[in-house]
């Protein structure tokens, strides 16, 4: 074997976008291959569990793990990968902060399965797959879901975080060589400034009378989307993505998670938005009018925690409300 770096990619509960994003770096992939050998990549190769188990501990220099931790299989595999790897990169928002699937944490595992397999909009009267089932060829085992979605660092120690859904070419072009050369610290690739810092739209002092659903608005493409009364998560979301969504008139949905140093993206956004909503003339409002303004924010939990729920303070739905 050459003395090139040995790297690997692994996906947990993921959509596959992160895997594809690796190819988004175009011809730079050649530079990566120049620097490193890819020794483990289930998406592109076909390794078996046994192959990984057979590898020596610490034999992978850098493993890039994407996807949330949703099943026992995810859990086992990342523990194994931790043993086999010198450095673990939480690649993409799912592994860094729990990701979109984390919204599932607002429901129990049973509710999710019931919804997925037995509702009119999905498959009414469908069968929830059993963990163990017998088929003519033998016994089948499905790895069960964990009670809730977790971020990678809840299971194993992470050395470098690289959020994004998925991480964008510009982030990768800058970040990958640094990761491979060992030149970045744990949070160096998490921006400490928000999307607003890079957003080209014209912003005003935030005095938003109330929010409106985006479909009800004719947005001015030059002006800050939030200023126009449509929820944009940009202010509470880590940048380095160069604000691709607001730049083309779509509000930021918060995929990078909180900026470096902030623990709870949703709480921050709630605090910020609630402070400025209806701020003008508030002293003349009755408490009921004020509450009405707050109501214009639809599904605050889902909107503010869309990507970061498993890494927030509360992480998953608790069973405190009875009856």
């Amino acid at each position: 074997m050459s003395d090139k770096l040995k790297i690997g990619f692994y996906w947990c509960a993921a959509c596959g976008g992160c895997e594809i994003s690796v190819l988004d770096i175009d011809e730079m992939i050649l530079d990566v291959v120049e620097l490193a050998d890819i020794v483990f990549w289930p998406c592109a190769m076909d390794p078996k569990y046994e192959d990984l188990r057979a590898m020596e501990d610490g034999s992978i220099d850098v493993i890039f793990i994407n996807g949330s931790i949703r099943s026992t299989e995810n859990e086992e595999m990342v523990k194994l990968l931790r043993e086999k790897s010198k450095k673990v990169v939480a690649y993409g928002s799912c592994s860094s902060i729990g990701g979109l699937f984390g919204l599932g944490n607002l429901y129990s595992k049973e509710e999710l399965l019931e919804y997925g397999y037995n509702t009119p909009s999905t498959e009414e009267g469908g069968v929830i797959p059993a963990e163990n089932s017998k088929v003519p060829e033998g016994e089948l085992h499905l790895p069960p879901l964990l009670h809730h979605v977790r971020s990678l660092d809840e299971i194993i120690e992470v050395d470098i975080y690289l959020p994004g859904c998925p991480p964008l070419p510009n982030q990768l072009k800058e970040g990958l060589p640094l990761i491979l050369e060992g030149k970045v610290g744990k949070y160096d690739l998490v921006s400490q400034k928000s999307v607003c810092d890079e957003c080209p739209l014209e912003r005003e002092e935030k005095k938003i009378p109330r929010l409106y659903p985006i479909q009800e608005m004719m947005l001015d493409p030059e002006r800050c989307i939030l200023d126009q009364g449509v929820l944009c998560m940009g202010p509470a979301t880590a940048g380095m993505c160069e604000a691709p969504c607001p730049s083309v008139g779509h509000p930021c949905i918060g995929c990078n998670g909180p900026v470096r140093g902030v623990k709870d993206q949703g709480a921050r956004m709630a605090s910020a938005l609630a402070s400025v909503l209806g701020v003008e003339g508030e002293e003349r409002m009755e408490e009921s009018e004020i509450i009405d303004v707050v109501k214009s924010v639809r599904d605050p939990t889902g909107s503010f925690y869309r990507f970061s729920l498993p890494k927030s303070y509360l992480r998953y739905k608790r069973r405190d409300i009875h009856g």
């Binding site: 400034k193 928000s194 002092e205 935030k206 940048g239 900026v259 400025v276």
Partner: peptide, 11 residues
């Protein structure tokens, strides 16, 4: 850290 979102100004 400040990213210039202008949230604080009107508050």
């Amino acid at each position: 850290k400040c990213s210039g979102c202008k949230m604080c100004i009107s508050v």
